[in-house]
Amino acid sequence: MGEYLLEVKGLSVSFCQYEKGWKRSRIQVIRELTVSVRTGEMVAVVGASGSGKSLLAHGIMGVLPYNASVSGEIRYQGEILTEKKIRQLRGKEIVLVPQSVSYLDPLMKVGKQVENGKKGRTGQCREALGRYGLGPETEQLYPFQLSGGMTRRVLISTAVIEKPKLVIADEPTPGLHLEAARRVLGHFREMADEGAGVLLITHDLELALQTADRVVVLYGGMTVEEADREAFQQEETLFHPYSRALYRAMPEHGFSFVPGSQPYVKEMPEGCPYQTRCREVKESCRKFVPLRKTERGSVRCVLWGGEESR
């Protein structure tokens, strides 16, 4: 499909690391990550801590550390997003909304940071802050003087002032109470409704389902399932055992949990990362499992594709 604004296909990110002095090893944090965003659409990428969510954002923005290497395909408006291209686009058409106050310069006033060093943007800055209920007095504050909720709104203001086409929001809700978190996600929904594509990276499936159009479930740095919001209304329309487990873990669906935890990146098994916890694990799970289309999205599971194999 060519109408995608952002298309990430089979993205892998690995780090080079020295251990025990001289031995060099590669740590694969993200592998086979696939996600796409259309214009005017809000897509949530949901995964537990350590599933490589932030790296996805940094990978798209081209700000991964020097010892990281990336493979796979990132396309923006149908064209490969090269390093040169992202350098031109980032901070203009493509913006990142980071997760915490530590992403603001501690010694620079908020107004200057929202303006981002470009002259003659005082009006736009005031407008952007005002849109989120922050008065002109906010411009004179330093980041340490902001509350958690104000920080999020300031960070969102740094995005809207650029009038972006693609917004990548990296964990915008932790530390906020439910009402504030909902409001923040509402701001992103608004941007999508105004025509931007929004990629929301979060660990909170419940909140994501309230605002996003589609949800991509990550496990161990890999896309295991992608489905529209409605598919998450009942267990039967979800296909991957992990997505189903997430569904059942939600308070209104029984609050149940699957024992075990996500394997550490260095001990990640070949094939499906969920095999260590899956109750329906098969021999074929230990080999590479392709992502296959379903009627509501796509899934990476050997069980998909026929009732007889269940």
């Binding site: 940094h58 992403y103 603001l104 310069d105 981002n116």
Partner: peptide, 12 residues
Amino acid sequence: SDYVLFARARGE
């Protein structure tokens, strides 16, 4: 630091 990473992501 995070804020330099963010500055980079904002095209500085």
